[in-house]
């Protein structure tokens, strides 16, 4: 009976912590909203249009991150159905896809800089914004990968199921959010690329 009680208290507390994650998502959303608004104000000036065709690498990274969201979803589902082997597998795949996303984004920077001549430093900061958007997003991805690692470790060390699900949920909220933010940024850039 005491155990159930402690679990119940934990659940209340975990609920509050999950809620905190949602608020964090809001702060993070505000950051990107501010950056994109900054872009609108900046590129509204004369002669500061972006005028860059987005590299195709971004299409690939978009596909990769969408798939990673899917695999993470499958991992959560497996965790809920107590299929822990499957959960581990999908978590690892998600982690791997996260790394791939990271690599593709950096590759896109390489393309932008060395093949398209769109430099980080230059008189048209609209172009710098591409790097700022992707860079800030990548920083978040790094953070999310660490959160993902916690979930993976939890899955491998057999923590109580409540905690396991809690970690899965924290990870999912963050990861799917970053997925959506990337799509937002990409579409934003596509709409403004002329």
């Amino acid at each position: 009976m005491i155990m159930t009680q402690i679990q119940q208290e934990d659940r209340v507390n975990l609920g509050a912590k999950k809620f905190s994650m949602w608020i964090f998502i809001f702060t993070s959303f505000m950051l990107f909203a501010a950056l994109t608004s900054g872009f609108i104000v900046y590129s509204g000036q004369k002669g500061h249009a972006l005028d860059v065709k987005m590299p195709t690498a971004f299409i690939y990274s978009t596909i990769v991150i969408i798939i990673s969201s899917l695999t993470l979803f499958l991992a959560s589902k497996a965790a809920k159905q107590l299929q822990f082997e499957k959960q581990k597998l999908f978590l690892l795949v998600t982690f791997f896809l996260g790394i791939v996303f990271l690599v593709i984004q950096i590759y896109a920077w390489y393309i932008l800089t060395y093949q398209m001549g769109v430099y980080f430093v230059g008189p048209n900061a609209s172009r710098t914004f591409i790097y700022v958007f992707t860079g800030m997003h990548l920083l978040h991805i790094l953070g999310a990968l660490i959160v993902l690692l916690f979930a993976i470790r939890g899955a491998y060390t057999n923590i109580p199921q409540v905690k396991n699900l809690y970690r899965m949920e924290m990870t999912s909220i963050f990861w799917h959010f970053l997925d959506i933010i990337w799509i937002y940024l990409y579409v934003f850039l596509l709409l403004n690329q002329n």
Binding site: T27, M30, L31, A33, A34, G38, T128
Partner: peptide, 20 residues
């Protein structure tokens, strides 16, 4: 977070030579 955005751009101007 909006101040963070402003400050990030400021740091780029300050230390990396961009022109926001």
């Amino acid at each position: 977070p909006v101040l963070v955005a402003g400050v990030v751009l400021l740091i780029f101007d300050r230390s990396f030579g961009t022109s926001f």
